[in-house]
């Protein structure tokens, strides 16, 4: 489902953000991508989301390859890969249902179906009662749920979450993690980047990758440190 083969990413001024990283996440897996700040987690997420292309190697996501997907066809990848962020990236001044509805509208959902589908998605993430609340009136956890509902508008195969609990308290974090596991139970691949090792320890069934200075140093599937 997600396959990185000898992927390196080099920036002109920063040097290597990722160096020869390879891993394969199969259908139905839940995986954590951990590491310190600057270890390459966000770069990896951006490469999987195809917001950036690798300098070397290949990223394969579902049926799409970084070597073949053109800028013009990027929208097809985005409809298969949902993404949420630490800072939620919601439209301020709009309600929860408007934020989800906006994503539905711009991806071509018929006008008549938008309201009901947006409400259904908010119900799925446990936020039906706050559908009419403005983003500014929602707590951090609730905002993240709206962002997750928005990421689900295209029924993606994969959900990428870049530090989604970074701004949340313990209770909200548990709620979001439960939601991720629920989505994973329905067949969605979830890849979550986090620097919170304590959080990953609370989910021992998940797969666990660790990056250090752009290199993959641990993959729980092989159980041994990976020689990069």
């Amino acid at each position: 489902m997600i396959e990185l083969t000898h992927v390196s990413k080099e920036y002109p001024k920063r040097g290597y953000a990722l160096h020869d990283v390879s891993f394969h996440i199969k259908k139905g897996e839940f995986a954590f991508l951990t590491g310190h700040s600057g270890s390459g987690k966000s770069t990896t997420m951006r490469l999987i989301h195809m917001a950036e292309r690798p300098t070397r190697g290949e990223v394969r996501v579902a049926a799409f390859s970084s070597e073949r997907v053109t800028e013009r066809d990027l929208w097809k990848v985005r409809r298969r890969v949902g993404m949420v962020f630490q800072d939620f990236r919601l439209l301020p001044g709009r309600t929860a249902v408007e934020n989800v509805g906006f994503a539905l509208e711009v991806t071509g959902t018929p006008q008549k179906a938008i309201q009901s589908r947006a409400n259904r998605l908010l119900t799925q993430v446990g936020l039906a009662s706050k559908a009419g609340a403005r983003v500014e009136e929602l707590s951090g956890g609730e905002r993240q749920r709206v962002a997750i509902a928005r990421a689900l508008v295209n029924d993606p195969y994969i959900l990428l979450a870049d530090e989604p609990t970074g701004n949340l308290d313990d209770r909200a974090t548990r709620g979001i993690m439960d939601l991720f596991w629920d989505l994973n139970a329905r067949g969605m691949v979830v890849l979550m980047a986090t620097h919170d090792l304590e959080l990953t320890r609370r989910h021992p069934h998940a797969r666990f990758f660790e990056l250090d200075q752009g290199k993959l140093v641990y993959d729980s599937a092989t159980a041994d440190p990976v020689a990069s």
Partner: peptide
Amino acid sequence: DEIYIMRLVGARNGFI
């Protein structure tokens, strides 16, 4: 922000 979200959720460039 709107453009960013449109790209994020897979709106086509022409549509944006």
